[in-house]
Design a protein around this nucleic acid. Structure first.
Lengths: 244, 244
DNA sequence: AGCCTACTCTGTACGACATACACGATTACT
DNA sequence: AGTAATCGTGTATGTCGTACAGAGTAGGCT
């Protein structure tokens, strides 16, 4: 039986109940919440061990009693920032996965620093795994095999991430919307000027006909639904198809 | 007319031809190639201004004559590491986009540090834009409108990234395959042990039936094709659908 | 030709950061 | 009561990005 790495153990609340020395003044959850609050308000760059320690009123080195490294802290943050998944209610698999994907995207947009966090994550924590479980569960009556279900969930989550990344980088950032929209328009302008129609035929034609000119053409919800329906149609077709 | 930021200008070879002082001993391409070589061999973490400077035989601060910051260097790297897109030949849009997406994924797997660079990037460079152009071009005869074409390309690129991320994190890394496969199996073991069937019904059932037990069930090419066909089917259905 | 000036690269310095190490204080178990 | 494990702190180290000032170089102008 494999041994749990200490942080993983703490993520899953598997601490031994009785310990030796002085009572800990903190716990992993407190530290993580403080770090998340800093990331929410000042951005991921402001999440330093010193800042987090100051936020919880402790010396920087004290944090290393709870996390093995800053990287570990970031990993825990990436899981703790995730809310519970939506309830299934009576929704069809398709309706449920649609809101599942949408909420995933909305989460990433409401905490953009999640986008910057390295997503090479086998070590998914309890919360992310709960989302995964719900997606798999929604597909349980469809006749897909395990691998297909898993891949479908992965694709949907990946799409949420792709869309959130694009949407975030182009605006829809609340108050910054105006600034970012202007940035996108400016960049489009520069590109239009710099793109050589000979080597970029399709793209330069598209730019000249005004793709980025009005930035609302991109960031709207219709674009998200577009790709989402694409994927759900694909899954539906797969379900309808006789088992291979 | 908007002014080009200096690095963007250099990325697009828009340097003024005559300059004042001593001839530069370097150019942006040399620096970028050195940085990419370091990233390829020692990983992204080893790409420091000092290391890059040493690699090209120059004092660290000299690099700042060519890039405004390390972030800019990373941005340029993210574009320069991209090879030219495949030729269209006589391929159907579907066949072309299939290899387009596959090659995108293969690129990300061959230079995994690109995965860590997932910056929120409007500033795409000439090479990435060339790929985008080819994808749009492949869809030019299909009757889709600009926004649909753009979204389709985005979704496919996003899928390549999702799949590469997952595949990389679970193995298929050449020599490390054994080590990583063992890692995945171990993690699966731990999860199986820790997952409470009551709160994770679908997932724990799936794990217990051996999803991660043999890691080849994931990383195989069939899984990539699965999602890819899902997307291409969706696009094909959209093309067949009468314009809304 | 000679000066001016923009531009090149260098050396030094500073502040931020992650983290190793050793210490004194605190508490449970023998 | 004593032992040993654990906690938080203070200090120190090495690395990093980059600001700044200076010395050398070479084109443009008079």
């Amino acid at each position: 039986m494999a041994e749990l790495p200490p942080v993983v153990a703490r993520m899953w609340d598997r601490e031994p109940t009785t310990r030796r020395g002085p009572r800990p003044r903190l716990d992993l959850a407190t530290i993580t919440m403080a770090a998340i609050e800093i990331a929410d308000t000042e951005g991921l760059a402001a999440v330093s061990m010193s800042n987090v320690a100051a936020q919880v009123g402790v010396a920087p080195m004290a944090l290393y009693r709870y996390v093995g490294s800053k990287d570990e802290l970031l990993t825990v943050m990436a899981d703790s920032a995730v809310p519970p998944p939506p309830e299934r209610e009576n929704l069809s698999w398709r309706a449920y996965l649609a809101t599942w994907t949408r909420l995933t995207r909305d989460l990433l947009l409401s905490r953009p620093w999640l986008l910057d966090l390295r997503q090479s994550t086998p070590p998914m924590g309890p919360r992310r795994l709960l989302w995964l479980d719900r997606a798999l569960d929604a597909l349980s009556g469809t006749g897909l095999d395990d691998s297909q279900k898993f891949n479908a969930a992965t694709v949907l989550a990946g799409y949420a991430l792709t869309d959130a990344t694009l949407t975030h980088s182009l605006g829809a950032g609340g108050k910054e919307l105006a600034a970012r929209a202007k940035g996108a328009a400016e960049y489009g302008e520069i590109l239009t000027e710099v793109l050589d129609p000979a080597t970029y035929p399709a793209l330069s034609a598209m730019m000249r006909s005004g793709l980025l000119r009005d930035s609302t053409g991109w960031t709207e919800d219709a674009d998200f639904r577009f790709g989402l329906d694409l994927l759900l149609d694909g899954i539906e077709a797969l379900i309808a198809r006789p088992a291979r």
